[in-house]
């Protein structure tokens, strides 16, 4: 059995190594990624989508359907974890487990800076690297870090119980709303209006999606942690 596994690994690794030899170098101008849709995104992306960050233009506009289904996948992962039978509820959990003073101090010291960095990534995402997913990942990490030091009940207070299901589903719901609005304005699902007089509407749609991805992603990561820990 072990011999077969080793042989399989060697064969797969050799195949991959041969395949890698055929790849164009990292900076080759004639590489296929540069002369298909990529070239058009770089040349006309800003003009066609009205977004200054090309990554954002691809995520929300050219590949908007991808992103929409991605947030549904993340939400589905949480739904699956929530559906698992639970050991106990938040209410009968101990108030806080003993935490090392070093961890407590470091998390308290860093939490505001992590939050600030996440917000900066979210709202500077249209001009610099960042955006909803990055901010959501940081918010999620912050929730988990705070959950470690606050204990289950303390962490449960971070997000109001009544708002929680709505925040967990924020990204899919906002995508649905923005897609419907785009449909009404342009005639195509998740379409962004191109007319100059609707510039503000287009910006608001993109911002709503980014904020919803960040908030929804962060709350989902935090909820995964809380549900598994409970």
């Amino acid at each position: 059995m072990k011999g077969w596994a080793l042989a399989l690994v060697v064969v797969v690794a050799a195949t991959l190594a041969i395949g890698v030899q055929g790849l164009p170098t990292h900076d080759a101008p004639e590489a296929p990624i540069h002369d298909h849709v990529g070239a058009r995104y770089v040349e006309r992306g800003v003009e066609e989508t009205g977004m200054r960050n090309l990554v954002g233009a691809v995520l929300l506009n050219y590949r908007g359907f991808d992103t929409m289904v991605e947030v549904v996948v993340i939400f589905t992962a949480l739904a699956a974890v929530l559906a698992l039978p639970r050991a106990g509820s938040v209410a009968d959990a101990p108030e806080a487990l003993p935490v090392s003073p070093v961890v407590l101090f470091v998390v308290r010291l860093l939490a505001p800076f992590i939050a600030l960095f996440a917000i900066a990534l979210l709202f500077r995402g249209h001009v610099s690297p960042g955006g909803g997913f990055q901010a959501g990942a940081l918010f999620g990490a912050l929730f988990v870090a705070l959950g470690l030091v606050l204990g289950r009940r303390g962490a449960a207070r971070l997000v109001p119980e009544r708002a929680r299901p709505w925040l967990q589903a924020a990204a899919p719901l906002t995508f649905a709303a923005v897609a419907a609005l785009g449909w009404a304005l342009t005639g195509s699902f998740l379409g962004f209006p191109q007319a100059p007089e609707l510039h503000a509407v287009r910006e608001a749609m993109a911002l709503a999606l980014e904020v919803a991805i960040a908030v929804g992603g962060g709350v989902i990561l935090g909820s995964l942690f809380q549900t598994m820990e409970a």
Binding site: G130, A137, L148, L224
Partner: peptide, 20 residues
């Protein structure tokens, strides 16, 4: 941007979830 996500999720959150 990928590096930020990798640090927060790949090195941070998944570690905690795996430990749990």
């Amino acid at each position: 941007d990928v590096a930020i996500t990798e640090a927060a999720v790949g090195a941070g959150v998944t570690t905690v979830l795996f430990l749990i």
